[in-house]
Every structure is written in structure tokens, then in C-alpha cells.
Simulated assay, not measured.
Amino acid sequence: MSNHTAITLSHISKVYANGTVALQDLNLSIPEAQFVSLVGASGCGKSTVLRLIAGLGKVSSGNIDWGIPQAARKLAFVFQDAALMPWATVRENIRLPLKLVGVPKQDAQNLVQQALALVGLTNFADSYPRQLSGGMKMRVSIARALVTQPNILLMDEPFGALDEITRSKLNSDLLDLWQKYHWTVVFVTHNIYEAVYLSNRVLVMGTNPGRVVADIAIDVPYPRDEEFRTSVLYNEYCRKVSRCLAEAIN
């Protein structure tokens, strides 16, 4: 893992027009190639943090500083809902972000093929969303993000609607890809077990207003597997995050 900082959020506050204070004095530093998860109760500002990093909203006060030069910075966002175009094939759904920025069709098709292979959907390139399971639709959504070849991946509860078996499989697949490509990942989840399994660090957020109240390092080497998921150490980390979350809510 790099010692260089990718993203620094300093004294970030976000107040909406109706007066709602979503975030107040939030501080966060994320090194390059680190996998960081944000956990917290609904309404604590987790998704707001992602949107501010992505430039989908403006901070009310504070600063977001980048350790990666703008010319080299490539962000991708995976949302909670796969939000696929029902009339388009898997291939065309994945190609969409390239089409929007004018990548030539032949170049785009090569990138799409690579993205399909990464998520294991090569044989479903010409299928339509209605023909896919929930897990496969989310794979398409992830491929649509990866086709842009990002170095920063923002993920907002991408597996929240999936059954546990599918979710567990996609967690492992995501970790395999992260270890191969060394993205900087900021991952929002309500699931403590998922956060501990995936992350270098789990950040617990408090509410009213949203802020980071605990920063827990998961000091376990990768790759991680089912043996880790059933270990005493894994359960200890899950209990620690759970205690911090309970304190943040009370």
C-alpha cells in the first residue's frame, strides 16, 4: 500500500438549503490504494461524503485536497441501484460512460471486453438487464465503472439489496480486483461484517451532525478468505466496530 495520500477531507461541513446539517467538522485522510469503509446509521452522511468527493455536491465549509494530480485522477462511482438502461444490452450499458466522453467505438469495444472479463460476464455481453439476476446486474454496474479505468473507486452500498451468498461472492471478487489494480476505494455500507472483511480501515460515523467518531484499522493481511470470515480475530473486529457504532448512535 502506498504511503502517498490520495484524498484529504479537512473540517468538512455540509448544510443543505433547508437547514439540515449533514456533516460537521469531518476530517479524513485516505492513502493511495487503501480500501476504506464508512459505516453508520441511516442519515449520518455516509453517502454525502462520497458525493462530495465525487464533485456531485459542494462543501459548505472546509477543504477537499488531492494527492493525485487532476490530470492523473480518474474517479468512478458505483451507486446502490444498478440503474441499467433496460432497452440496452449489457455491452451497451457498460459502454455508456465511454460514449458520453466520445471514445471511438473500436477503442470503446476493446475496453468493454476487458471490463466484461473482469466481472465474469463475457458470455452475457448481448443479454438485456431483464435476463439477469440481481447480482449480475450489479456486476454490470461495477463493469460500467471499471471501463473508465479509474484509480479511485467510490461505492455507495452496492451490495445492499443482494442475498448473503451473492453478496459474499461479490465481496471476494471485489477484493481480488482491488488487489490486482490497487485502486483507492471508499466504500459505504450498513453491514459491519462486510466492512471488516473488505477494509484496511473502517470509519464509524456518528449522527446529528455526521462526523467520524472512530477509525479502526483492520490489521489483517490480504488475501482474505472464508477462514478469516470464521476466525476469532474477525469476530473481535466486528464486535469492536459494533460497539463503536452503538456508542455513536446513543
Results as ranks from 00 to 15, higher is better:
28 L>D: 05
64 I>G: 02
180 K>W: 00
109 Q>C: 07
83 A>Y: 10
87 W>K: 00
188 V>H: 11
121 L>F: 04
185 V>F: 01
218 I>L: 08
42 S>M: 02
109 Q>E: 15
98 L>P: 13
167 R>L: 05
162 L>R: 14
89 T>M: 05
214 A>N: 14
194 E>Q: 10
157 E>H: 12
110 N>E: 13
51 R>T: 10
208 N>V: 08
206 G>N: 05
198 L>P: 09
183 W>N: 12
66 W>K: 06
139 R>G: 08
162 L>F: 10
57 G>R: 01
203 L>H: 05
78 V>Y: 05
102 G>D: 10
89 T>Y: 04
73 R>P: 06
75 L>P: 12
125 A>I: 00
92 E>F: 09
178 W>D: 03
135 G>R: 08
24 Q>T: 08
201 R>G: 08
76 A>K: 03
232 V>E: 14
69 P>I: 07
202 V>W: 02
108 A>W: 01
124 F>W: 05
113 Q>M: 11
20 T>R: 11
79 F>D: 13
90 V>D: 01
51 R>C: 13
82 A>C: 06
173 D>H: 02
177 L>V: 02
42 S>P: 01
197 Y>D: 08
115 A>V: 00
86 P>T: 10
113 Q>P: 01
79 F>A: 14
245 L>R: 09
25 D>R: 10
86 P>G: 06
81 D>H: 14
36 V>I: 15
187 F>S: 13
186 V>D: 12
180 K>Y: 00
41 A>F: 09
219 D>T: 12
130 R>Y: 14
136 M>I: 02
48 T>G: 10
139 R>Y: 09
173 D>G: 03
149 Q>N: 15
177 L>K: 13
196 V>G: 05
80 Q>W: 07
95 R>S: 12
192 I>R: 03
89 T>I: 10
62 G>Q: 12
206 G>W: 05
94 I>S: 02
154 L>E: 12
148 T>N: 13
220 V>A: 04
59 V>R: 06
76 A>S: 15
49 V>N: 08
22 A>R: 10
247 E>S: 14
18 N>H: 11
64 I>A: 02
64 I>L: 13
190 H>T: 02
222 Y>Q: 13
65 D>Q: 14
79 F>N: 06
78 V>S: 11
226 E>H: 02
250 N>A: 07
158 P>S: 11
17 A>R: 11
141 S>G: 15
85 M>F: 15
198 L>F: 04
222 Y>W: 12
121 L>C: 11
141 S>R: 07
192 I>F: 13
17 A>Y: 02
121 L>H: 11
58 K>I: 03
116 L>K: 00
128 Y>I: 00
175 L>D: 03
75 L>M: 15
154 L>K: 05
170 L>R: 05
146 L>M: 05
67 G>P: 01
184 T>Y: 07
35 F>D: 09
44 C>H: 04
163 D>Y: 06
71 A>H: 08
122 T>I: 00
91 R>Y: 00
11 H>K: 15
120 G>Q: 09
127 S>D: 03
248 A>I: 11
201 R>L: 07
228 F>A: 13
72 A>V: 02
94 I>G: 01
169 K>G: 04
94 I>Y: 01
64 I>C: 02
155 M>W: 04
225 D>P: 05
151 N>D: 09
134 G>W: 08
168 S>N: 12
38 L>C: 08
99 K>E: 15
103 V>A: 07
156 D>G: 07
221 P>R: 07
77 F>E: 10
